[in-house]
Write a protein that binds this DNA or RNA. Structure first.
Lengths: 333, 333
DNA sequence: TTGTAAGCGTTATCAT
DNA sequence: ATGATAACGCTTACAA
């Protein structure tokens, strides 16, 4: 391995001068710089990042921990974070957590030392784990299960957006609006969106029929399709479905088609996330478009402030993103 | 920051003993281990990975560089690699390259020092860049543009699979089969699949009409939809479309629907990749299912052999994955 | 079984 | 403008 020492020797200067050249420090005579650059090229020198990290205590890399990399939603999230971080001169390294265990693991500083900070998309952790977030390294939490914790936090406008989505169905004439969500336990994405759904019904003076509240254990297309078929074949009376994710909604569109129910004529469907597929689905899917990029921007911004310690470590921010409704064919265009 | 020294002092032992405890070395008396563990817990000690890496020259992490994280295909790929690596006790860190520049960058050892090895999904690089792959760190290249290069290489069965997909359309009665692919320049995914398409037509004694070879500049849904509309509205005579990616194919399904062409009655469509959405699309999409997991497994395996130097550095492997056809509604079920 | 010494490659500090 | 020195926190090799 070629080290700074080797380059120094070859160029007839001190290691320090080589370092100065590498890092573009000002006080290097042009002729010296030339000599060094030439030696670096000749020896094919590459900086040893591990050594640099050790010395600097910084890596220039932030970690992004998500439950799943192969999901349209987290893919979209990752893309936003990468763009936002790039603009700030940071690289992003993505890790898949898959379980609450791994989420806590990702937090554990043993990993954190490899990153200047961590953006943790917490799906498995709950309020009960909030204590564990008390780490002395920069962390920003994304998600809906932790609020007022000991870290900065960026969340979706779940309640308001769910209310708006449900209201949209009602405005289009739906009177028997179902919701398709995940298991509801304490505060999480499904529970918040369910509350928004309830509020919308209430606001319109419609009754809340428990039979219309449909829960599945995974928020994927397969589950959406299966449940939609069950609802249709079981004779459930509904003319609208608010799905808490686009994946669910696309599954529902499939399931309804399978059972001969026409969307939007016989039932209107709206999703949540505005993943890229929803625009091209047949019928195209109405959905909630959260301000992904705004949230990503904000998360990176908060993290950088922690990294650079420009924020007092006693105050923590809870940021809730923006949203808009995207109306497409599945609710009548 | 709490260091090994601090723990050693607190436990009344030497730093070395602490290190031995951390690394589960055998020769530590249980009582000593207890003392050390207690001190570690009390001081909330975390190992400094940068220091360990510097000393060991290993990180236990492999890098995965993909052009895009927010794409069903690369998401699927990443998931496979993560699973395969996990089984071998390695963690995976994903980076987005987005351009040829960044792909070369990812190669550059400056980054590589952070990983034990790199799996590079090369979309922007071409055979001309093959020389650049001559790095003395473990690298496995995924993709269709580099063959016989100075690194191990894992590729899709492009030619054979494209031939099979096209043949399937022909067997279903299509006589005017179009192909939708990307810009064809030297050897790349599109060119290989185009060749497979040509071979299938030839094998069936069908003429190759240049008008049926449709090229777009990005392989996404939007491009597929737009081009399908253009083809339909332009009066192009076709009764089948082989799309070189599922994204393109889903876009095509959308575009054909928009112009009133019924699939599969008036035109059959087949894709490539078997992304998870294709099963639920309406109509569900027939497609080539590459053995993603097998390829991922193989890529990780090859990389590990390089890392552990169990493979002579003079010989390099070119592995071509397996595939199967998944027949769904878009070609008649 | 435990401890000592040295060094991984880099850069901050201070001196020249 | 350049260089000597000393760390960063850890582990390998060896000594006790």
């Amino acid at each position: 391995m070629v080290t700074i020492q080797d380059v120094a020797k070859a160029a007839g200067v001190s290691p320090m001068t080589v370092s100065n050249v590498i890092n573009d420090h000002p006080n290097v005579r042009p002729s010296t710089r030339e000599k060094v650059l030439e030696a670096m090229a000749r020896l094919d020198y590459r900086v040893n990042v591990a050594a640099r990290n050790l010395r600097k205590g910084r890596t220039g890399v932030i970690g992004l921990a998500v439950p799943e990399v192969n999901s349209p939603y987290y893919g979209r999230l990752a893309a936003g974070i990468i763009t936002a971080a790039e603009r700030r001169g940071l690289r992003v390294s993505i890790e898949q957590t898959a379980s609450r265990e791994n989420e806590l693991d990702a937090l554990s500083l043993s990993r954190n030392h490899q990153y200047d900070g961590l953006i943790l998309s917490a799906a498995g952790m709950s309020q009960a784990d909030a204590e564990r977030l008390k780490v002395d390294h920069p962390v920003v939490v994304l998600g809906d299960r932790i609020f007022g914790g000991p870290v900065d936090h960026v969340a979706m406008p779940n309640l308001e957006a769910a209310r708006a989505a449900t209201r949209h169905l009602i405005e289009r004439g739906c009177r028997r609006v179902a919701i398709l969500c995940g298991a509801v336990e304490e505060v999480d994405t499904s529970s918040l969106r369910l509350t928004g759904y309830r509020q919308a019904l209430e606001g319109a003076g419609l009754p809340t029929d428990p039979a219309l509240i449909q829960q599945v254990d995974r928020l994927g297309m397969r589950e959406g399709a299966r449940r939609a078929r069950e609802m249709a074949e079981g004779g459930l009376d509904f003319d609208g479905v608010f799905c808490v994710t686009d994946s669910l909604a696309m599954g529902v569109l499939r399931g309804l088609t399978d059972t001969g129910i026409r969307v939007p004529d016989q039932a209107r469907v709206i999703g949540f996330d505005n993943v890229s597929e929803s625009e091209f689905f047949i019928p195209s899917l109405s959905t909630v478009d959260p301000d992904h990029d705004g949230m990503a921007e904000r998360a990176v911004d908060l993290l950088i402030r922690r990294i650079e310690q420009t924020e007092p470590s006693t105050r923590h921010h809870d940021f809730v993103g923006d949203f808009s409704l995207v109306i497409r064919e599945s609710t009548g265009g």
